[in-house]
Design a protein around this nucleic acid. Structure first.
Lengths: 228, 228
DNA sequence: TTGATTCTTGACCATGTGGTCAGCTTTGGC
DNA sequence: GCCAAAGCTGACCACATGGTCAAGAATCAA
């Protein structure tokens, strides 16, 4: 009776795995572009190179497909949200935070836009996640930021607004890609562009929040810039 | 042969004006929530308290209605984009910039989300605007920022990334409202919240970009915080 | 080869879609 | 009070939607 189970097992034959991959990739594009309602199973099927019936055969329904994509995106998100402690170097933590979020926008632009579209529509499927898991995560980081402020390692800014600042300014380069490209006149953002933007954002945040290097340069081995 | 003309004249009787207002308001909500494709004329009509035929009678078609909303939003945007010169005080200009963009998110959240949804979908209707008018606007501001940097009034940051930073971090509070409320556990953001966020963003940007007060405190009377 | 499981897909269905239209009522200037 | 213009709207249309299903095709272990 065990259903497919949305976790990342690779049960099922090679055919299933291949087709599901194609469907998920196509669906992420289409949902990201048109939102849940605006996306059609027909278009997803075409982009996946399969008949519509086949998509429904693998995914059950449009809704299940959508939920599965959201869950996949949240897994990626969670993989990025590593833990921090008040003993870490604020500058390093913030820098790594910005960098990994920027990398997420870079690696999974469709997923980022899918997520944005869900939030834009009032987060009908994600409300629980936002006010549960994610909220807890934010609160725990906020506590660390506050302690840093108390120790004089940074200005006493509201940690939640700071987290939102980092999220929004990095997410921007996925969600508003069309605007960024239109205004800069580029065809695409290069790796160098992304690196420069990352450095710019890091600098503004760290300097803007008055982050200081800890007195005793405690050598803790963090800086997990990569995502996995 | 003069058509209704999308500019903000108030031609037409009182009935027309009232109904169009209701339709535009309802349509902005629905398009913002579900995107262009996902929105249905039926739902817009219901939210406006009119039969579907009546909506089509006034607006012609779904597409025309959508375009009209985008144009209205761009008018609001343009009304906000006042001019600046290299003689102005950088801190004041940036502060006013952040404040007015924040006010836009506050006053027209649906419009902001409508705009976001359009960009998210690849800006099929706005590409021209983005790579034309808006691009010119950005370039002209960028030139001023660069001159400030040359005069040592601020750090030599890339002005375009700075503008995107301000846009994204302010727009966030309209577009990702659902996320902000879910995480902060609030029902809505109060005026005080908005004021604190505005001050926070202003502080981070100004401090983060090393903005200095001009040597001779030139008293120019700008700071147009209100939108009209 | 057998037989069960998985895969594939066109036909089909009820419902929703944007849009048209004809005929009605209301409005407002004269 | 007249009447043209404006407003109103239910009925209707062709088409797209998400989803079902049955019947066949491919796969694979025994």
């Amino acid at each position: 009776m065990a259903k497919i189970d949305s976790s990342s097992e690779q049960e099922g034959g090679a055919i299933r795995r291949r087709n599901e991959r194609a469907i998920l990739a196509a669906a992420e594009r289409v949902f990201a572009r048109h939102g849940y309602r605006g996306a059609s199973v027909q278009e997803i099927a075409e982009q996946a190179g399969l008949p519509k019936s086949n998509v429904l055969y693998y995914m059950g329904s449009k809704r299940k497909l959508y939920v599965r994509l959201l869950e996949r995106m949240m897994e990626r998100w969670n993989a990025m949200l590593d833990d921090i402690s008040a003993e870490d170097d604020p500058a390093e933590v913030l820098s790594a935070f910005i960098r990994s979020k920027m990398l997420m926008s870079r690696r999974h632009p469709e997923g980022s836009r899918l997520f944005a579209s869900e939030i834009l529509g009032g987060a009908p499927f994600l409300q629980e996640y936002l006010s549960g898991e994610l909220r807890d995560w934010v609160q725990s980081r906020a506590a660390v930021f506050r302690e840093w402020a108390e120790r004089g390692l940074m200005d006493p800014v509201d940690p939640v607004w700071l987290i939102f600042l980092i999220w929004s300014s990095t997410q921007h380069y996925a969600d508003f890609e069309a605007q960024v490209l239109g205004i800069t006149g580029r065809e695409a953002l290069s790796d160098e562009d992304l690196e420069r933007i990352t450095e710019f954002l890091t600098q503004v945040v760290i300097k803007g929040c008055g982050v200081k290097h800890p007195a005793a340069q405690a050598p803790s081995e963090r800086t997990s810039l990569t995502e996995r």
